[in-house]
Design a binder for these strands. Structure first.
Length: 422
RNA sequence: GCCCCCAUCGACUAGCGGCCCAGGUCACAGCCCUUUCAAGGCUGUAGCGCGGGUUCGAAUCCCGCUGGGGGCACCA
């Protein structure tokens, strides 16, 4: 029987949820869930201000949107304040810690090495002489991070600590504290950082940073999760696209790379397009509707739903939707000159006035035969119509667009520009 | 200064001694398809940081160097 697994996701309540943290949390989640393990959400707070409360809400919303769930109530580092104080006194009584100007310091060994077998890095050894005696309790009685953290892990019975590589140097300290407390240390796994294209840690100036930023820019959870999982991990030498279920089944913490990875927005966008195209038409429309609403656009939902299928294959991020479909919802004026297009537009107008029914297929048939009669290449004949009706050189499929726009509106737009184009 | 971590195409990675004059994906370039834009198909450019070992044989193992990154708080 496998021992029960319990991991924890431990964000700092400072601002919005950073995408790098999300990657670490995702690894925790992907590691624990398939084993039937538990996932705890613990806020690493040092105070209980209004900001902490808001950030906590925000963090939960982001995780929910991503589909990363956790067990039980959200915990807070400060909840263990009294335990920390008790344990610190215990260490003093046992001679393992001592008072120093009102604070309590943990006594680090002077010789030997402290080592552990890191799941992603292998054996890591740190000479004890390089570790200074650590303040575990401040003068005001509050525990410091490197004391509160291992105590929380111990009391929560965490079996695997999967965290960012910036914690590597904290690990020997925490390990020594845990041993002094007589606790069985958890297994540690330090996952690599996520960097921007300049080799620095990903931040706002790289374009996006928080889950909210990505959401606003039209990325969907499926793509983000897939992309993040592939940053620092690969299943084999072929597979790039993973569903959440596949990741749950195939992810392996042991094969996570130890080297840091650069966040490639272009590849994320590509993946986003892939996952967007894989959604069912219904699901796709739901996402578009939600995005449009969140973007503050007051567009008719029914029309948005009908326009959605016309661009499912064309956009890779939801924020491109308005650009392609705005003409369905708002008046447009051609942004491009239509010199010499008068005849085509006039005849198209006549034809479109009579097509029955006013649907993509018959519309296409009639317009194609018009092009033939005029001895125009398809694009020469269709492009002016597209521009006249959509206001742009780029649009969803012309015939489907006309159908959705409707006969009346189509004819009106044609008539409006015809004069100017003559 | 001290400690720790990392090192394959521009990017993400496969590779765990011979199957690799290094494979896949994004990006980029060209071609095809095509009503625009996409999507799709095909082709191409491009990489094992350097130096020593070990070995019949090294991208793969060892050492050094160089280059990145993190840490050394009564921050988390």
């Amino acid at each position: 029987m496998n021992p029960p697994v319990r991991v924890r996701m431990a964000p700092s309540p400072t601002g919005l949820l950073h995408i790098g943290s999300v990657r670490t949390f995702l690894f925790n989640w992907l590691f624990a869930r398939p084993k039937g393990g538990e996932v705890l959400l613990r806020i690493e707070n040092t105070d209980t201000s209004r900001e902490v409360e808001e950030a906590t809400e925000q963090i939960q919303r982001s995780l929910e949107w991503l589909g990363i769930d956790w067990d039980g109530p959200v915990r807070f580092q400060l909840d263990r304040m009294e335990d920390a104080q008790r344990l610190a006194r215990q260490l003093v009584d046992e001679g393992k810690a001592y008072e120093d100007e009102g604070a309590i310091r943990f006594r680090m060994p002077d010789e030997g090495v402290t080592a552990w077998d890191d799941v992603v890095r292998g054996r890591v050894e740190v000479p004890n002489e390089s570790i200074e005696d650590l303040v575990i309790l401040r003068g005001d009685g509050r525990p410091t991070y490197n004391f509160a953290n291992p105590i929380d892990d111990m009391l929560d019975a965490i079996t695997h600590v999967i965290r960012g590589q910036d914690h590597i140097s904290n690990t020997p300290k925490q390990l020594l504290i845990l041993r002094a407390l007589g606790a069985e240390p958890p297994v540690y796994a330090h996952v690599p950082d996520v960097l921007g294209d300049d080799g620095k840690k990903l931040s706002k100036r790289h374009g996006a940073q928080s889950v909210d930023d990505f959401r606003r820019q039209g990325y969907i959870p499926e793509a983000l999760v897939n992309f993040l999982a592939r940053l620092g991990w690969a299943y084999d030498d072929q597979k790039e696209v993973f569903t959440r279920e596949e990741l749950l089944r195939l992810f392996d913490l042991e094969t996570v790379t130890p080297s840091p990875a650069v966040f490639d927005f272009q590849k994320l966008s590509w993946l986003n397009g892939v996952h967007l195209r894989e959604l069912s038409p219904k699901e796709y429309a739901d996402r578009v509707v939600e995005y449009i609403r969140d973007a503050g656009l007051d567009w008719d939902e029914e029309l948005v739903r009908r326009a959605a299928p016309l661009v499912q294959e064309k956009i890779e991020k939801l924020d491109q939707f308005p650009g392609y479909t705005r003409f369905f919802f708002e008046e447009v004026s051609p942004a491009v000159p239509l010199d010499g297009a008068g005849p085509v537009l006039e005849q198209a107008e006549q034809i479109l006035a009579d097509v029955e029914p006013f649907e993509a297929e018959p519309i296409e048939r009639e317009l194609r035969s018009l092009a033939e009669r005029l001895e125009l290449k398809p694009r020469e004949a269709f492009q002016p119509i597209r521009i006249a009706v959509t206001g742009s050189k780029v649009s969803p499929g012309l015939f489907e667009s006309l159908e959705l726009l409707g006969r009346d509106e189509t004819l009106t737009r044609l008539a409006t520009v015809r004069g100017a184009a003559a």
